[in-house]
C-alpha cells in the first residue's frame, strides 16, 4: 500500500476492497433491512456502483463511498417497507451456561425474544448504531466515521436506543 495512487479500477484492488469491506457493508445493510436477501442485493449494487465509478473514487474514499451509496440505495428502493426484523439469529447458545436450570434457560429465551422485538422497534438510526456497536464491536469513533456523523451524535443514538430498549422490555 505504499503507492499513493492505488486505482480502484484495478481488478486486484477492487477485490481487495471487497474482501476488506463487504462484510461490514453487508451487516450495515442487514441492520437497515433486517433481511439477508435484501442486504445482499444492496451490497452487490453498491460494489457495482463502486466499479462503475472507479475512476472517480480514490482508494481511501472507497469505504465511505460504499456506505453512502448503499444507504442511498436502501432509501431509494424502500426495501424497508414491511421488513420483519430478525437479527437475532441466536443459535448462539453461548449465552447459556451448561449448569443453567431449565427455568433459567427459558427465562433467558424470553428475554431474548423481548430484546429482539425491542430492537425491531428502534428507529433505523438507533438500530444501526446499537447493532454496529454490539455485533460488529465497533468503537463509537469508528461508527461516527462510517456514518459521517460526530462521536457525540453516535453516543446520543446509542443512549436513546438503550432508553427505548429498556422501556420496551419492561419488567424482567
Amino acid at each position: 500500500m505504499t503507492e499513493d495512487k492505488k486505482s480502484v479500477c484495478k481488478p486486484t484492488v477492487f477485490e481487495e476492497l471487497y474482501k476488506k469491506h463487504s462484510k461490514d457493508v453487508f451487516n450495515f445493510m442487514f441492520y437497515k433491512t433486517g433481511s439477508k436477501a435484501n442486504a445482499e442485493d444492496l451490497l452487490q449494487e453498491a460494489f457495482v456502483k463502486l466499479w462503475k465509478n472507479c475512476e472517480k473514487v480514490a482508494y481511501e474514499k472507497a469505504k465511505s463511498f460504499l456506505f453512502t451509496v448503499s444507504s442511498n440505495l436502501f432509501l431509494n428502493e424502500k426495501k424497508h417497507e414491511k421488513v420483519v426484523h430478525k437479527y437475532i439469529e441466536n443459535q448462539n447458545k453461548s449465552s447459556y451456561k451448561d449448569n443453567d436450570t431449565p427455568e433459567n434457560v427459558l427465562r433467558q429465551k424470553e428475554f431474548q425474544d423481548k430484546l429482539n422485538n425491542a430492537i425491531a422497534s428502534l428507529s433505523e438510526k438507533q438500530r444501526e448504531v446499537f447493532l454496529m456497536s454490539r455485533i460488529d464491536k465497533k468503537k463509537y469513533a469508528e461508527i461516527a466515521e462510517t456514518l459521517g456523523i460526530s462521536v457525540k451524535a453516535v453516543e446520543k443514538r446509542m443512549h436513546n436506543a438503550l432508553v427505548i430498549l429498556r422501556d420496551k422490555i419492561g419488567k424482567i
Binding site: 474482501k19 463487504s22 462484510k23 437475532i88 439469529e89 448462539n92 449465552s95 431474548q112 430484546l115
Partner: peptide, 23 residues
Amino acid sequence: EIKNQSEHLSVPNFDTDKNFSAI
C-alpha cells in the same frame, strides 16, 4: 441484561465468494 444478551447477537452468515461472483 441488555448488555449481556446483546453480546451474543449475530447476523446471518455472509457468503463472501458467492456475493463476489454475483457482483
